[in-house]
């Protein structure tokens, strides 16, 4: 297993490097940058000194340097105006729009995004697992049909629409406003029990909204996989030998059916963060999604680049975790595999 972990980590490193290069190139690809857009506006307003100001700021932030050098400075392997100060040193760069270090701008939002998405992942697994197993074991029962119907609705309904409906229902039926992730009085305050309770109360609806489609998809996959396993010869043999159904289910088919379930973890983390952007806009959630969209629109390159790199990092880590879990869950030879190199 140790050898497997090392080889898997070895693959991750160049992947992350390539991802960081691709991220930086994509951010730089559109013509101009945040500063030139800003200065263009000033010139339109008749600011004569705007061109000189642009040159000064471009030099100050190193935007006049070749792209490769800018990338090396951003990564922290080449000295910039502040010496070696990049991602490797924990400095994500400067946000032109917020006039603050990127780390300060995204700090709280990343934490809130993490909390929201972590709870959503737990919700997706906690709901889809028992329903997926039930619908497979009780195939074509009333419960199976009902759950399948609800699942299809979950898959077909856009998240932002569900968010609007729940916002309306919460307001008209319960008289509560569920926009945001906490009551206004707690914004900017240090963490306290009351603030924690407020965050938890506000999390309920976003978690349901963001998690619904993922839950529905997961139920369908688990049901299909488990049905495949339950129809296999070894299950029939175990039944005829008198093995108890629950024990049989847990010991073999469920374990095999879990493979795609676990493999999904890799895609789940980035999907949750990037996929929840529209919901966050609709529900006024102070998470990272809306900020990423805005940073991309305004070409705030270090802010957008750091976000994209973070999402890629989550994908790579997610794939790593899912591969490790798969290796533990199912260390079987694949047919045709050339074992014994």
């Amino acid at each position: 297993m140790f050898g497997y972990v090392v080889q898997r980590v070895l693959i991750m490193i160049p992947t992350l490097l390539v991802v960081s290069i691709a991220t930086f190139v994509i951010i730089q690809a559109p013509p101009g940058d945040y500063l030139s857009n800003e200065i263009a506006e000033l010139l339109e307003q008749g600011d004569k000194a705007a061109a000189e100001k642009l040159e000064f700021l471009r030099k100050e932030f190193g935007l006049d340097k070749p792209m490769l050098e800018q990338y090396a400075v951003w990564l922290g392997v080449w000295p910039g105006t502040n010496g070696y100060s990049g991602i490797l040193q924990g400095d994500l760069g400067w946000s032109f729009e917020f006039q603050q270090p990127v780390l300060d701008v995204v700090g709280d939002r990343l934490l809130l995004s993490f909390v929201l998405n972590f709870v959503t992942i737990l919700f997706v697994y906690a709901v889809s697992f028992p329903i997926g197993v039930y619908t497979a074991v009780r195939q074509y029962s009333f419960g199976d049909h009902a759950m399948t119907f609800v699942g299809y609705i979950g898959l077909a309904t856009p998240n932002f629409l569900l968010a609007l409906i729940l916002l309306f229902l919460a307001k008209t039926w319960f008289g509560v406003s569920i926009g945001g992730l906490m009551d206004d009085e707690f914004i900017g305050q240090p963490m306290s029990w009351d603030k924690f309770v407020s965050v938890m109360q506000h999390l309920v609806v976003p978690v349901i909204v963001i998690g619904t489609s993922g839950t529905a998809g997961m139920i369908r996959r688990l049901r299909a996989n488990l049905l495949d396993e339950l129809q296999k010869q070894y299950v029939v043999t175990a039944r005829t030998k008198g093995m108890r159904p629950t024990r049989l289910l847990i010991k073999y088919p469920l374990r095999m059916a879990l493979n795609p379930f676990v493999a999904d973890i890799g895609n789940l983390l980035p999907q949750m963060i990037s996929g929840s952007a529209i919901v966050a806009v609709v529900m006024s959630l102070p998470t990272s999604g809306p900020m990423l969209v805005h940073a991309l629109q305004s070409q705030d390159q270090y802010l957008a680049g750091s976000f994209l790199l973070f999402l890629s990092f989550l994908t790579v880590i997610g794939m790593f975790v899912s591969d490790l879990l798969l290796a533990v869950l199912d260390p079987r030879i694949r047919l045709g595999a050339e074992a014994g190199r």
């Binding site: 070895l10 160049p14 392997v77 070696y84 991602i87 490797l88 924990g90």
Partner: peptide, 27 residues
Amino acid sequence: ADYARAGVGIVITAVPLIASGSFGVVA
């Protein structure tokens, strides 16, 4: 092959570590 993996791994982690010259969280 295993020595090569270990060597490549050490080099590609040591280079950014030395180049960055700091001991932050990422380092």
